[in-house]
Design a protein around this nucleic acid. Structure first.
Length: 666
DNA sequence: GCGGATCAC
DNA sequence: TATGGTGATCCGC
């Protein structure tokens, strides 16, 4: 870093605003950084950022210590383990698919310019003084970008024009683009309103044209239908395609051929921050602890990564270094939670807070009823005047979705926190009732598979494209699952947590009321099923395994004492032989049947639980067994349908396979 | 099951 | 004056 912190205090204020976005190459980063710092300095928001930053620094120090304490013997051991793992991952590489990622250029801003052409050529941002959603390219030249508060943007660019968001418009144009995508891949994955993944393997083969031409064609069609430009990336997997679509933005494209050497060359100099799932914090940790800046260095430092991170985290990093990513086309995804939250001017007025809570409950209930959802876990989110975020949850015995029920329980959660000075409140409901199992990402992609899994007619009219700015997406979701996993493990791996002065400071900021919290936690929750956490792990492991093509990927990964680790891993892993057959019973399920595979895992897990229980309590009566199964059902809605279907799973599978084939032929 | 945290759009 | 909203996920408790 140039200059001391005393001379240039703004340089130590780590924001996302200076990381290179398309159209911001020529920006004077130091100036932007300085303005952002000057506008923020001293604010509550800024103080909270400082607190978080100090916390990360602390974690980094601990990791450095671990790093420094590794002996030569340690390192040679970890190198062996890492090398083997990298070989296994390499063996899973799939170069048979051609993926295309489309990304609309400055989407909201472009749409607004279409409906008001006088904006053309002028710096403009969609959003408010508080927050900017999208900035056009003229504005980006000034360092204005999404996620930046408007008042700072105006400082950077005084003539900046602000346009309020209008999701009806964006939804309309998004639908137009999707009609184009559908022609090239009926199972395309909508990443959000403005991006999508298309598997163009078949189109290229059938028409015998290069992927480059398909990309040109799609972009031309999108322009023709909407008047909007987009960029495209073509690559052997989704992770790389996404990186590629950013390279020649705006209104450009980049093709990475399905060739291992080309991929490795491409990845070698690529900054890790370009990879989806590696954000500000992960970048900082990898840089400051390991000196890792490029994807290639993930492999160079593999032994250190192996030593300091968990298996799944290290796996993710290696796969980045190898340029691996998902190549399957998941057919269905289910919503797992529904929420709303609002920011308002700070208040500690209990009556006012209760009124706002009632409004949230009302809105949430409406949303849930629209989608036919009922849930049994309710979470209250508070952001205090000092920007500290608190979540407080209850899990009920029955499923709720009426505003009265929601408000009743939310009020209890809130009461336990009072008095408190709040700037945001939110409500979330999760743990849905399995029979009303929510919606698909895009109703137009409906297949026989999700017809069955969602109960067909029982599925409510959830047209997700009407849900405004948050399309419900399979890919976003799965990408997130990757980073959720590794970033969280960065936290979890700090063995010195809770023992340092910094943590004491951290905690002193919070106003934690033990008595209230305890009361709330026990009030409606008299059936804490300890089996559920194990259950979640099963699902997590299997779905994460899907990240890496999974061709006979060996999951025994011996970090320290092999036996200990294996015993905890073994039972949570479902191996799909040749990525097709269940290793336990031979049932055949191709990788695209994501949900079916999860259910299948559930089945084996439930089976295992029952076996364990009968071996632990040999005298247990049938009634006890039934009860144990029920507790699983309550904990996870999937297991019920799993149990219903186990009798006839094979006929069902073959039906699904046939249906899917014929659908693809259409 | 809960709470904190990261990440994406 | 002023730093969003929705959703997903994981780990350590």
């Amino acid at each position: 870093m140039e200059g001391s912190e005393e001379d240039h205090p703004w340089q130590s204020y780590n924001t996302v605003y200076t990381t290179a976005k398309a159209g911001m190459e020529g920006v004077d980063k130091d100036k932007v950084q300085r303005v952002v710092y000057e506008m923020s300095k001293g604010s509550k928001y800024f103080q909270n950022e400082e607190r978080k930053e100090a916390f990360i620094k602390h974690k980094i120090d601990n990791m450095r210590l671990q790093f420094a304490n590794l002996t030569q013997a340690d390192l040679s051991h970890y190198q062996k383990v890492a090398d083997r793992r990298i070989l296994e991952l390499e063996a899973s590489r799939d170069l048979s698919r051609i993926w295309l990622h489309v990304d609309m250029d400055a989407f909201y801003a472009a749409v607004e310019t279409l409906s008001n052409p006088t904006l053309k050529g002028k710096p403009m941002a969609v959003g408010s003084m508080s927050m900017i959603s999208t900035a056009n390219y003229e504005a980006r030249k000034f360092g204005v970008r999404s996620a930046m508060p408007g008042f700072i943007a105006r400082k950077l660019c005084p003539e900046l024009i602000f346009v309020p968001v209008d999701f009806n418009k964006y939804n309309h144009y998004s639908d137009l683009t999707r009609k184009v995508f559908q022609r090239y891949d009926p199972n395309f994955i909508a990443g959000s309103l403005d991006e999508a993944y298309l598997d163009i393997t078949e189109v290229c083969r059938e028409r015998n044209v290069k992927s480059e031409e398909i990309a040109q064609e799609i972009r031309a069609s999108v322009y023709e239908e909407t008047g909007l430009t987009c960029s495209a990336g073509v690559a052997p997997n989704r992770l790389l395609a996404k990186v590629c679509s950013d390279i020649n933005k705006p209104n450009g494209q980049y093709v990475l051929p399905n060739d291992r050497l080309a991929v490795m060359t491409f990845i070698s100099s690529l900054p890790i921050r370009k990879i989806g799932g590696i954000g500000k914090v992960t970048e900082q940790i990898l840089k400051e602890v390991f000196g890792i800046n490029t994807c290639e260095q993930m492999l160079d430092k593999s032994s250190y990564l192996c030593a300091l991170f968990s298996q799944s985290t290290a796996d993710f990093f290696y796969s980045v270094g190898l340029g691996l990513g998902k190549t399957d086309s998941p057919q269905v995804r289910f919503r797992k939670s529904i929420s709303n939250e609002r920011t308002f001017s700070v208040t500690e007025d209990e009556v006012l807070l209760h009124k706002k809570l009632a409004e949230l409950a009302e809105m949430l209930s409406t949303d849930m009823q629209k989608e036919g959802l009922q849930g049994r876990t309710l979470t209250l989110k508070l952001k205090t005047a000092s920007f500290e975020v608190r979540n407080r949850a209850v899990t009920l015995q029955n499923y709720i979705n009426s505003s009265e029920d929601i408000l009743k329980h939310a009020s209890k959660l809130l009461k336990a926190e009072l008095p408190v000075s709040v700037r945001l409140m939110g409500l979330r409901v999760s743990q849905f009732n399995g029979e009303k199992f929510g919606a698909t990402p895009d109703p137009r992609q409906k297949t026989i598979t999700n017809f069955i899994t969602s109960g067909g007619a029982n599925r409510k009219n959830s047209s997700f494209s009407d849900v405004a700015d948050h399309d419900f997406v399979s890919d976003t979701e799965t990408d997130v699952s990757i980073d959720g996993r590794h970033t969280d493990q960065l936290d979890g791996r700090d063995p010195f947590d809770g023992n340092h002065s910094l943590d004491v400071n951290y905690q002193s900021c919070t106003l934690w009321k033990n008595d209230g919290a305890e009361k709330v936690q026990t009030s409606d929750n008299d059936d804490p099923s300890s089996t559920h956490s194990g259950f979640t792990e099963v699902l997590g492991s299997t779905s994460f395994q899907g990240q890496f093509e999974g061709k006979n990927v060996n999951n025994e990964f011996n970090l320290l004492e092999d036996d200990k680790l294996n015993s905890s891993c073994q039972e949570s892993i479902m191996l799909w032989l040749d990525d097709y057959k269940c290793s336990l019973c031979g049932t055949e399920l191709p990788p695209s049947f994501v949900e079916e595979r999860l259910e299948h895992s559930d089945f084996h897990f439930a089976e295992k639980l029952q076996k364990e229980e009968s071996s632990i309590h040999p005298a247990s009566t049938p009634i006890q067994r039934i009860r144990s199964t029920e507790s699983i059902d309550k904990a996870n809605p999937r297991s019920k349908s799993c149990r219903i279907r186990r009798a006839g799973i094979r006929p069902l599978i073959s039906f699904l396979l046939e249906s899917n084939q014929s659908l693809k032929l259409l």
